[in-house]
């Protein structure tokens, strides 16, 4: 029996308008056979969590290049826990300093993809992680 396609929410959190990366990744995930919901710009952490639960996704991919990640990502993780949805895998892409990556990964972000990452890396990571979670 063929597996059901993976469902991924790709979102832009905060006021950041740089959506090139988010859109390229969304398109690559789709070409890799995943079902992708793209939120568009200016989502609050609340909106992201709500959309992820409503759309029943296994993965949330958040893109942020404005430097507000330490304020905007922890609320997403916290709300997922509160709503018993911490099984949803959260991956992040953007300009994130090393020490912040350490903090975010300790607090529930599965992986952070910084500039230079390939869409193949991201696709493989998501597939493996979802497989592990089964």
């Amino acid at each position: 029996m063929a597996d059901k396609p993976l469902r991924v929410l790709v979102g832009k959190v905060g006021l950041d308008g740089h959506d090139r990366g988010a859109k390229v990744v969304a398109q690559a995930l789709r070409d890799a056979g995943m079902e992708v919901v793209y939120t568009g710009l200016r989502q609050t952490p609340e909106q992201i969590v709500e959309a992820a639960i409503q759309e029943d996704v296994q993965v949330i991919g958040l893109s942020i290049l404005s430097g507000a990640h330490m304020q905007l990502l922890p609320p997403v993780l916290e709300m997922l826990r509160e709503q018993d949805s911490s099984d949803i895998i959260v991956v992040v892409g953007g300009i994130i300093p090393r020490e912040d990556i350490v903090y975010l990964k300790e607090n529930g972000v599965a992986e952070v993809f910084t500039p230079g990452s390939t869409t193949v890396d991201i696709i493989n990571f998501i597939k493996e992680k979802v497989e592990q979670n089964k």
Binding site: L15, T44, S66, A68, H69, M70, Q71, L72
Partner: peptide, 9 residues
């Protein structure tokens, strides 16, 4: 909505 963004970029 300015949360986290003040003085950043």
């Amino acid at each position: 909505l300015a949360r986290g963004e003040v003085g950043k970029v």
